Lab assay of single mutants.
Amino acid sequence: MEVVDPQQLGMFTEGELMSVGMDTFIHRIDSTEVIYQPRRKRAKLIGKYLMGDLLGEGSYGKVKEVLDSETLCRRAVKILKKKKLRRIPNGEANVKKEIQLLRRLRHKNVIQLVDVLYNEEKQKMYMVMEYCVCGMQEMLDSVPEKRFPVCQAHGYFCQLIDGLEYLHSQGIVHKDIKPGNLLLTTGGTLKISDLGVAEALHPFAADDTCRTSQGSPAFQPPEIANGLDTFSGFKVDIWSAGVTLYNITTGLYPFEGDNIYKLFENIGKGSYAIPGDCGPPLSDLLKGMLEYEPAKRFSIRQIRQHSWFRKKHPPAEAPVPIPPSPDTKDRWRSMTVVPYLEDLHGADEDEDLFDIEDDIIYTQDFTVPGQVPEEEASHNGQRRGLPKAVCMNGTEAAQLSTKSRAEGRAPNPARKACSASSKIRRLSACKQQ
Rank of each mutant, 00 (worst) to 15 (best):
V338C: 05
N119W: 14
A347I: 13
E92F: 14
T395C: 15
D352H: 09
E256R: 12
G270A: 04
M18P: 15
M139Q: 07
K122T: 15
G276T: 08
H107W: 01
Q137D: 02
V143Q: 04
D284L: 05
C132E: 06
K64Q: 14
R331P: 13
R310S: 13
F298G: 00
S193Y: 00
G215Y: 07
D343G: 11
N109T: 05
P222V: 04
S169T: 09
E120H: 15
A206E: 01
H379A: 11
F148D: 00
S31W: 05
L117H: 06
D258Y: 12
S378V: 06
T367C: 11
V34L: 07
N266T: 04
R405H: 14
H107V: 01
V338S: 14
I248M: 09
I322L: 05
M139T: 08
R405P: 09
R104T: 10
E14D: 08
D358G: 07
Y272T: 12
E92I: 00
V95L: 05
Y166P: 06
Y246G: 02
I360A: 14
Y118V: 06
L400A: 15
P144A: 07
K262V: 09
G242M: 00
R104G: 02
I29W: 15
D365S: 13
S169I: 01
N119H: 10
I356A: 12
L245F: 00
P411D: 14
A389Q: 08
K329Y: 07
V390G: 11
M51S: 04
S422I: 10
Y340T: 14
A397P: 08
P294A: 11
H168D: 01
P6M: 03
S299F: 02
Y166V: 07
L184P: 01
I356T: 14
E256A: 03
K262P: 14
T395I: 05
F219S: 04
L290R: 00
Y166K: 14
D208V: 06
S422K: 13
E376M: 05
Q371P: 10
Y272M: 15
G135Y: 10
A417T: 13
I224F: 07
H168L: 01
E291W: 10
D352L: 15
P315M: 14
L286D: 00
P324T: 07
E317V: 10
T13S: 01
A295F: 06
C210E: 01
T363W: 08
T244G: 00
L67H: 02
R74P: 09
S334E: 13
T244V: 07
R40M: 09
E33D: 07
H306R: 03
E223Q: 03
D352Y: 05
S401D: 08
T24Y: 12
A398I: 07
K403H: 13
E2V: 11
S142G: 15
F309D: 00
A377H: 01
G288L: 01
D350P: 12
L386V: 06
E57I: 07
I99S: 04
P254T: 05
C73G: 06
V320T: 14
S334C: 01
E130R: 02
V368S: 07
D330Q: 01
L167G: 01
A398Y: 09
Q214S: 04
T189F: 09
Q220T: 15
A273H: 05
V3L: 03
P319R: 13
G180T: 13
L195E: 14
D5N: 09
Q433R: 05
A398K: 13
I356V: 12
T402W: 12
Q170G: 11
L85A: 15
R75Y: 13
P413G: 14
K84S: 15
R103T: 10
G268M: 02
